[in-house]
């Protein structure tokens, strides 16, 4: 493909950037990313991937916008309260960059629909708000050999890890299984500094763009942790776990299951 005059202007800062250039921009334009969740993490990821011109951006979210989301989920505006998050996201991204094909899925990610969903994408980005969906996505990505860009946030803390199946550890190598339902807190109970998912989401989207470009080094085998309160970043080396139930030597998880949804993730009102 060759760029239109508008595209040359829109992507000029990438085209003139050594290490990206026109060939790199074309790789971004050809990229296909599936975002799981259009919430705190999904918002910044979606905005920057769309701004960069990622060719196809899929967004799956079965939730509707709540007033309490707006403190951090910057895809959604006050007038969107009550609207499907996936649809709200699609509207914003399509307005930002008409070059991108935006696909909105108003459904919950489950063991039965995940294969059909991820097959059309090159990468999967973790913007989930619960352990069950995160483990499901990790396992499916490992089995389908799709890069999985993990991110998570709570209170003042966040973390990010890039999973390249076959090359480095997966999320389950670090956290073997979801904690029992009811033993953990999510954002609604524990609270979260609104800007925090912005920081972590931007790290995830930086990783996605670098993956598409094939440049730099990724957070493979390195968990980046962020403490916003003390403004400290650190990288923790993690190893592939040979006993990992999904990517270890003798995997015991051979098919996907839906974990029981923690009570705290259910609508209480």
């Amino acid at each position: 493909m060759s760029f239109t005059d508008d595209q040359i202007v829109r992507y000029s800062r990438h085209i003139v950037l050594p290490g990206v250039g026109s060939s790199g921009q074309k790789k971004i334009n050809a990229g296909r990313a599936l975002l799981i969740g259009a919430g705190g993490l999904g918002s910044p990821v979606a905005y920057y991937l769309a701004a960069a011109g990622v060719g196809t951006i899929g967004i799956i979210d079965d939730d509707v916008v709540d007033l309490s989301n707006l403190q951090r989920q910057i895809l959604h505006f006050t007038a969107d309260v009550g609207k499907s998050k996936a649809v709200s996201a699609k509207e914003k991204l399509a307005a930002l960059n008409p070059d991108c094909r935006i696909v909105a899925y108003q459904e919950r990610l489950t063991a039965s629909n995940i294969w059909e969903l991820i097959k059309d994408y090159d990468v999967v980005v973790d913007g989930t708000d619960n352990f069950g969906t995160r483990f499901l996505a990790n396992d499916a990505c490992v089995m389908a050999k799709k890069p999985f860009f993990h991110g998570a946030v709570l209170r003042f803390f966040g973390q990010a890890l890039t999973v390249l199946p076959g090359e480095g550890p997966c999320y389950r190598c670090v956290f073997q299984e979801p904690p029992p339902a009811g033993t953990t807190q999510n954002c609604s109970q524990a609270g979260i500094l609104g800007v925090l998912p912005g920081t972590i989401g931007l790290i995830q989207s930086t990783e996605v763009l670098k993956y598409f470009l094939g440049t730099g080094s990724l957070l493979v085998g390195k968990m980046l942790t962020y403490d916003a309160l003390n403004m400290e970043f650190s990288k923790v080396e993690i190893q592939k776990n040979p006993d990992c139930p999904v990517c270890g030597v003798n995997p015991t998880i051979l098919e996907l299951v839906d974990y029981e949804q923690p009570v705290c993730d259910l609508k209480s009102n």
Binding site: S2, F3, I8, V9, S12, R13, I15, V16, G21, S22
Partner: peptide
């Protein structure tokens, strides 16, 4: 600039 340079490069 930098569209000048971008167009030249392309």
């Amino acid at each position: 600039c930098p569209i000048t340079f971008a167009k030249t490069l392309l």
